[in-house]
């Protein structure tokens, strides 16, 4: 009997869906809107995160060493730095390396190169270029390098010159993160309320039918079941519709974003994660549709 009832509930759910195709279409379009907003927020997060990560990557701290500091000591400091949890990577640039880079960078400026050749000695300093896990940690790293035991070796740490830029980037990163979460929550909540209200209006339309079902002896579950099934169908179709709209949209928009922010490729992200995105959309859509029906129908079942 349970099996028969379950089959009947599912069948009725599909039947209601078809016979009220206009109402179904309207509800689905609202859920599509919700899912579209949610996916857009997700993609926006991908953009901001990679922009922030890129900015953080560009910021580093360099420690310059006195000309007479032996290379071995510098490499020892490098080993010490790598052991710190805040440090992501440390690159050693020797005096010769620094000279080569300098000449490369200024190869168009003949005057500068000539005056460099005038000198007998290499005027450039060996340095360590340090990247931190996040911009907020440079303070600690700079403090580590300024310990007295390194004082004879280290000439200067350029953190203090870059300090303002670094702080700004680190503030920006955390603000974008926090603001993004709040904006996402607010927008998602709005979308959920709109969906819920749409489903509630649909249910209002059904309230007389529901009372008739009660009066001819249907149990609450038997009445509610088809509506929940319908909600799940809404969710699945809405998820697929969202993907179908999103794909061509990204196809056109993504190259434009990439030309602004070379490190962001939304289309690639979308294609790689399409399975997970689909599952997320179907899940959110189905839960939204069925839960809204479930809650909205409750008040009409007390007959």
């Amino acid at each position: 009997m349970i099996r028969t009832n379950l089959l009947r509930i599912i069948k009725t759910g599909f039947q209601n869906f078809w016979r009220n195709s206009w109402l179904s279409a309207a509800t689905i379009s609202i859920i599509v809107l919700t899912l579209f907003v949610m996916t857009s927020l997700l993609l926006l997060n991908v953009i901001t995160q990679s922009v922030v990560a890129d900015l953080e990557n560009k910021v580093d701290v360099s420690a310059y060493f006195n000309s007479e500091s032996p290379e071995n000591d510098i490499l020892a400091i490098r080993q010490d730095l790598i052991k710190l949890s805040e440090v992501k990577s440390v690159e050693y640039v020797s005096k010769e390396e620094a000279l080569k880079q300098f000449k490369e960078r200024h190869k168009d400026n003949q005057t500068l190169l000539q005056s460099l050749d005038e000198l007998d000695d290499n005027p450039l300093q060996a340095s360590l270029n340090i990247k931190a896990q996040s911009a907020a940690q440079f303070e600690t790293i700079a403090g580590f390098l300024e310990q007295s035991k390194y004082a004879s070796l280290v000439d200067k740490v350029n953190y203090h010159q870059n300090r303002e830029v670094i702080e700004r980037v680190s503030n920006l990163a955390s603000n974008i993160g926090r603001g993004g979460i709040i904006a996402s929550l607010v927008l998602a909540l709005m979308a959920i309320f709109i969906t819920f209200n749409t489903v509630r209006l649909t249910m209002y339309n059904w309230k007389d039918e529901i009372s008739v079902m009660r009066l001819v002896g249907a149990s609450n579950w038997y009445i509610r079941g088809p509506f929940v099934v319908e909600g799940v169908i809404y969710g699945i179709l809405a998820a697929m519709a969202t993907l179908i709209i999103l794909y061509p949209a990204l196809y056109f928009v993504s190259p434009k974003i990439t030309s602004f922010l070379p490190e962001v490729d939304l289309l690639y992200f979308f294609e790689v994660n399409i399975g997970q995105i689909l599952m997320l959309l179907v899940g959110v859509g189905a839960v939204l549709g069925s839960l809204s029906s479930f809650i909205a129908i409750r008040r009409y079942l007390r007959v």
Partner: peptide, 11 residues
């Protein structure tokens, strides 16, 4: 048929 279906009668 709905009245019978709701009561769980067989097809």
């Amino acid at each position: 048929a709905f009245a019978m279906e709701a009561a769980g009668d067989s097809n």
